[in-house]
Design a protein around this nucleic acid. Structure first.
Length: 474
RNA sequence: GGUCCCAUCGUCUAGUGGCCCAGGACGCUGGCCUCUCACGCCGGAAACACGGGUUCGAAACCCGUUGGGACCA
């Protein structure tokens, strides 16, 4: 698998479902790895005991699986690698690059308030740096931040970002409970896993200077960094729960196709000339960091819907049918189309509907009257077409359809044609009442397709039902 | 408040100093096709945040302003 030295990772914290932003970060890492024939590592950053849950871990796996974003190594769990962080910290301690700090949270909070009152940025003052007495009480380990005036983050997407090194304080690397802090565990893991490129959300930009000083203190080469801009909601704030559906799996439930979502999030922040629709292979072939933009993108549900519709109508009917299965409503009153027609074939129904829907949920809704005898008449259909004036026409249909020798498109066209001539009606006037009687709607696939899909027996039954209905409601 | 980032149609974006009085896509909209609705096809409205530079030439480079965002507290 690995033929290049490129190694990337997706490192989610399991504190919720996989949201769109996380999915995109995962996707970009995946695409980058596949494009360069590198290795994609999955690492679960579950050192926050309070907020990490098993359900979240499962939700993240489910989301990645649904989107077919597969990884090469892992999943690794930080909670199972505590020794690694401990050892690294001990090494720093013995080298004098870290030290024990006995300041209590209360003391720190007080000093923070004082600093705030004086209007200076609160930062640890380093008072435990050189202490020689180590009482046997709980303490944290702090990193002895080197005195560097400026730290430059070389970012593959944004270029150089300069930070004032004097603003970094001696941050905690191991908490008093023995757990590593976020920034510490990340660096130790990226190093241990040989990560060559760190592609992550740009909400981590401000963590990078600290991480760089740690890499350097460890004598380790720096990975290359690439910070991907956030995905925003319509209010231009970071996408979150209050923006509605942000869980990847929620899109599954709403009837989106996984590749449509992948295609959509790929194009959010990345582009390849004017192309909008990409196969998985094209995504892999074309993906590059040079064309990842640097400004945040606003999530647009309309465009996702359009893409989903594209994928639905380009999918072959049998694949689509099987994807549709979980969305189908139970059929309570099945019907047999009659001797001239095969069983109502889901593939054929889907074929006729797929250019008219945008989600699998809509498709399931549309398909139902073609599988179940029970359906209701829409108010439009009742007002415009299921009216006494049309009773003779519907009766005529019933008679002529009964008389057809075989139920073929040609014969049906002939029936409608001849009725049109007899009654001096154009196809428009002929088809609508028939459509309303057969489907209960003013909108459906082509009238001949509807007739063929339902079959003679069911068509005659529905015509009878319409006649009865009109009789009762004149 | 501090640090950092960002800025092309409503939205996603193309654009890497002349090909741009700015191209594509979604959405909106006029029309064609047509048995309805879609699909498809043809057209339209719609943007370089502002102000200074640099340059023969700036959407692109630099500075400032404004606006937005993220992180930390």
């Amino acid at each position: 698998m690995t033929t290049s030295g490129i190694r990337v990772r997706f490192a989610p914290s399991p504190t919720g479902f996989l949201h769109l932003g996380g999915a995109r970060t995962a996707l970009f890492n995946y695409l980058f790895a596949r494009h360069h024939k590198g290795t994609f590592v999955l690492r679960v950053e579950d050192t926050d005991q309070e907020r990490s849950t098993g359900d979240s871990i499962q939700a993240i796996f489910d989301g990645l699986k649904w989107l077919s974003i597969d990884w090469d190594e892992g999943p690794f769990f930080q909670s199972k690698r505590l020794d690694l962080y401990r050892n690294a910290a001990d090494r720093l301690l013995s080298e004098g690059k870290a030290y024990r700090c006995f300041c209590t949270p209360e003391e720190l909070e007080e000093r923070r308030k004082e600093a705030f009152a004086k209007g200076i940025p609160p930062r640890y003052d380093g008072r435990c740096r050189d202490r020689s007495h180590f009482p046997d009480i709980p303490h944290v380990l702090r990193f002895r931040t080197p005195d560097i005036p400026e730290i430059v983050v070389r970012d593959l997407i944004r270029g150089d970002m300069r930070f004032n090194g004097n603003l970094l304080d001696d941050w905690v690397i191991i908490r008093s409970d023995g757990y590593p802090t976020y920034n510490f565990a990340v660096v130790i893991d990226d190093l241990d896993m040989g990560i060559s490129h760190v592609l992550r959300g740009d909400d981590h930009i401000n963590n990078t200077p600290r991480q760089i000083t740690l890499f350097e203190a460890l004598g380790a080469p720096l990975p290359k960094f690439a910070h991907i801009p956030m995905i925003h909601g319509p209010d231009r704030a970071k996408l979150s729960k209050r923006h509605g559906a942000t869980s990847v799996m929620a899109y599954h439930e709403m009837g989106y196709l996984p590749h449509a979502l992948v295609n959509y999030i790929a194009r959010l922040g990345w582009s390849h000339k004017d192309q909008e629709i990409f196969s998985r292979q094209e995504l892999i072939d074309y993906f590059d960091l040079d064309h990842v933009g640097s400004s945040p993108a606003v999530f647009n549900p309309e465009k996702l819907l359009w893409l989903n519709a594209q994928y639905i109508r380009n999918e072959d009917p049998s694949t689509l049918s099987s994807e549709l299965l979980p969305f189908l409503k139970p059929v309570r009153h099945p019907f047999s189309p009659g001797p001239d027609t095969k069983e109502p074939n889901l593939d054929r129904i889907v074929e006729e509907w797929k250019t008219r829907v945008r989600t699998l949920t809509e498709l399931a809704e549309a398909v139902h009257p073609f599988r179940d005898q029970e359906f209701s008449y829409s108010s439009d259909a009742m007002e415009k077409h299921l009216i006494p004036d049309n009773k003779p026409l519907i009766l005529l249909y019933s008679q002529r359809f009964s008389a057809i020798s075989s139920w073929t498109r040609e014969n049906l066209e002939e029936v409608l044609g001849s009725i049109g001539l007899e009654c001096n009606l154009k196809l428009g006037k002929l088809a609508q009442p028939l459509r309303a009687a057969l489907t209960g709607q003013n909108v459906s696939p082509g009238i001949y397709d509807v007739l063929l899909l339902l079959g003679r027996d069911e068509v005659l039954r529905r015509l009878d039902r319409a006649l009865t209905f009109i009789g009762q409601h004149k």
